[in-house]
């Protein structure tokens, strides 16, 4: 309390309510910011005045651009639009946008944090033409592998689904692309924490992100599919030589229909080590698998088989694939 009347007045001033009067503009707040500005001329950007609706192609381009949007919902809706646009076209006509545009744009959504977006993505991927997917298999595989090692369990699970789809659609490309075989095997082993006896630790450390049995089963299923694609004989297309009789095995001398045929020569990019190398032959893959992964897989399988139940069944499947796939390799070794 002060005795000074001036100070009292000053204090009062702070708490006085501004008087409002009917018909008068309300007094401005003390912190009001003037947003008015002066300009010599104002130009409006061109407005679309055409009455014609944009074409499907243009809409698709627009929605592809929206895949980076920050709202989950928007991303999901854009994906849904693309899905419906692709399913909507009559068979035989080309896609509204070529797959070489769509796939690079959508593939990074494999790592999307929102579950709804990821599910929508898988739907979209599944309706894409299979041979288009095959040409982009290496890119998709990279993203899938990133997903498989992601911190979030949900994304890890989802990435396995994508992998299974990818192996089903383009198994040959997946196992033979650059880094596709060794890096994937390494990735699986580290996910399953399978180690060969030599480097095994005393005790298995519990993993950090909950690696429950269900996830492990899924991982083993995916590994089964992957190994089946890599170790089994590719479906040999029966060659009928009758049609062009004097020429034998013409298709071997023709230019391949695949894109980037000489990728394995690695002419234009950085030199690859063994991990990033391409293994196009089944024998090569068998050899590498034997070198790098088989002991670990066998020991891991033993433990998984003991666990029984669902995991045991998955492990049995896997063991069968490994045995079948590696059978002729081991036989050769014995013979040699």
């Amino acid at each position: 309390m002060t005795t000074s009347s001036k100070k009292k007045k000053d204090k009062k001033k702070d708490f006085q309510k501004p008087k409002l009067r009917v018909g008068k503009a309300a007094p401005k707040a003390a912190n009001a910011t003037s947003t008015s500005f002066k300009a010599k001329s104002i130009s409006l950007k061109q407005q679309a005045l055409s009455a014609i609706a944009p074409t499907l192609e243009a809409q698709c381009v627009h929605h592809l651009g929206l895949l980076d949007h920050k709202a989950d919902k928007q991303r999901q809706e854009s994906l849904a639009f693309l899905t419906s646009a692709i399913t909507g076209i009559t068979p035989g006509t080309p896609l509204p946008q070529p797959a070489s545009v769509i796939i690079p744009a959508v593939q990074r959504l494999i790592l999307d944090p929102s579950n709804a977006v990821r599910q929508q993505l898988l739907k979209l991927l599944k309706i894409l033409p299979e041979n288009d997917v095959a040409t982009h298999a290496d890119q998709l595989l990279l993203h899938t592998r990133a997903g498989m090692t992601h911190l979030s369990v949900q994304i890890r699970t989802f990435a396995l689904e994508v992998l299974q789809w990818l192996v089903r659609v383009a198994g040959d490309e997946v196992v033979s692309c650059a880094g596709g075989w060794v890096k994937m095997l390494k990735c699986f082993l580290s996910l399953l924490i399978w180690k060969s006896e030599g480097e095994g630790k005393w005790s298995q450390a519990k993993s950090y992100g909950k690696s429950d049995a269900k996830l492990q089963v899924k991982q083993m299923d995916a590994l089964t599919a992957f190994l089946r694609a890599g170790l089994y004989h590719a479906q040999v297309v029966s060659i009928s030589n009758d049609s062009n009789f004097p020429l034998w095995q013409t298709e071997h001398h023709m230019l391949s229909e695949r894109s980037n045929v000489y990728a394995h020569l690695n002419l234009f990019s950085a030199t690859r080590d063994e991990e990033a190398e391409m293994f196009e032959d089944r024998e090569d893959r068998q050899r590498v698998f034997n070198d790098r992964a088989e002991p670990a897989v066998v020991t891991g399988l033993e433990q998984a088989l003991k666990a029984g139940g669902e995991m045991g069944r998955a492990a049995a499947q896997l063991r069968k694939v490994v045995r079948d796939g590696m059978a002729d390799f081991h036989r050769e070794e014995i013979i040699v």
Binding site: H143, A146, T149, H150, L151, K183, C187, S190, A205, Y208
Partner: peptide, 20 residues
């Protein structure tokens, strides 16, 4: 030492993302 495997996973993730 206990979290070596987890680190290994993250390392792989890093390698993949780096390649990408």
């Amino acid at each position: 030492q206990s979290y070596r495997d987890d680190f290994n996973n993250q390392w792989q993730q890093y390698e993949t993302l780096r390649d990408l």
